[in-house]
């Protein structure tokens, strides 16, 4: 996709996300400034070292049968930045995400978060250490209310122990504090009116918002968003973008997988490109858009327009079937 087509899209997110949006008008917020400055001296090559990496991965490999889905030699993610992970379909982005967050086990490789190794750490412990993810296909808990969804995210709850659960006085005050925090977050994400609705009754975009808000309840240092824009109606896109930027303002690091190049260019400080399981390029968004290898990977592979959920499903299905066939041989 040619870069000049969407020159105006930089002015997004103004109407949303409270303080973050206001700060955005100045286009360069303190956090963004800091992230860009830190990344300014980084060489735009695959596996480039960063001044203050929060996440470092080495030799992470995942094979399905004979097919190597992920083979990432080295990457680092700069603390406090918004980093995009892009690539054509089947590039292994989501699989890599699953590996990093403990939802899948690699055949090989090490990776660390805040200097602590995460290899072999189960997914729930990864979340507790401060790296929380969302899912490509939203996992709102449909038959629970929005508030229950939110409260589930709170950590260290006394009432989640079997024995203390039976005695409400032990956890009531904590529950109240959590509820207040959840209400603040819901207000920020403009979901406060939905508080007592079942999550299953909400639109796709609202569910994405809920999932993000719920992830924040965990109090993460790093948020991993798997295609935050997939299946979201365009009216909500701007709002979502604003919220992602707001995460950085709040001092969090964001790594997200995305197809939508506009979004990538608009909000990311740094872009990592994957193709066929490997990191093929890295750099600031504008450089990446012009990078030959990247354009080849995209044009040579699949189109880069946002996919509908059905298309997405069919492609995932196709990919998986391919893997399976590989598996059988």
């Amino acid at each position: 996709m040619p870069a000049d087509q969407h020159a105006t899209s930089a002015e997004v997110g103004e109407t949303t996300a409270g303080g973050a949006a206001t700060a955005d008008r100045a286009s360069l917020t303190p956090a963004k400034d800091r992230a860009l400055k830190a990344l300014a001296g980084v060489e735009p090559v695959p596996g480039a070292p960063k001044p203050d990496p929060i996440l470092v991965a080495d030799g992470v490999t995942r094979r399905f049968g004979g097919l190597t889905a992920v083979e990432v030699a080295h990457i680092e993610v700069q603390r406090g930045s918004i980093t995009a992970l892009i690539g054509p379909n089947g590039a292994g982005k989501s699989t890599f995400f699953n590996l990093l967050t403990g939802f899948d086990r690699p055949d090989d490789g090490t990776w660390s978060f805040n200097g602590q190794s995460l290899a072999g750490v189960p997914s729930h412990k990864v979340a507790r250490r401060g790296m929380v993810r969302t899912f490509q296909l939203t996992k709102a808990l449909s038959r629970m209310t929005v508030m229950q969804n939110m409260l589930l995210g709170a950590t260290g709850q006394k009432g989640e122990g079997f024995l203390s659960a039976i005695f409400p006085p032990l956890w009531r005050s904590q529950e109240k504090a959590n509820t207040e925090r959840a209400e603040e977050l819901l207000a920020r994400f403009k979901l406060d009116k939905k508080r007592d609705d079942f999550a299953g009754t909400m639109s796709g975009g609202q569910r994405k918002l809920l999932e993000m808000a719920r992830a924040l309840m965990v109090g993460p240092e790093m948020v991993m968003l798997d295609e935050p824009m997939a299946g979201v109606n365009p009216a909500l896109t701007q709002s979502l973008l604003g919220h992602v930027k707001a995460l950085r303002e709040d001092g969090m690091t964001v790594l997200f997988v995305e197809h939508d190049m506009d979004m990538v260019r608009d909000i990311s400080d740094w872009v990592i490109v994957m193709a066929q399981g490997k990191v093929i390029a890295e750099g600031p968004p504008h450089d990446i858009m012009a990078n030959e290898a990247v354009i080849d990977a995209y044009l040579g592979g699949h189109h880069d327009a946002p996919l509908t959920e059905a298309e997405e499903q069919a492609q995932i299905a196709a990919g998986e079937a391919e893997l399976r066939r590989e598996d059988h041989t």
């Binding site: 499903q313 069919a314 299905a317 196709a318 998986e320 079937a321 399976r324 066939r325």
Partner: peptide, 9 residues
Amino acid sequence: ADNPALASS
């Protein structure tokens, strides 16, 4: 059996 969605499409 491998993948109904794919087979159908």
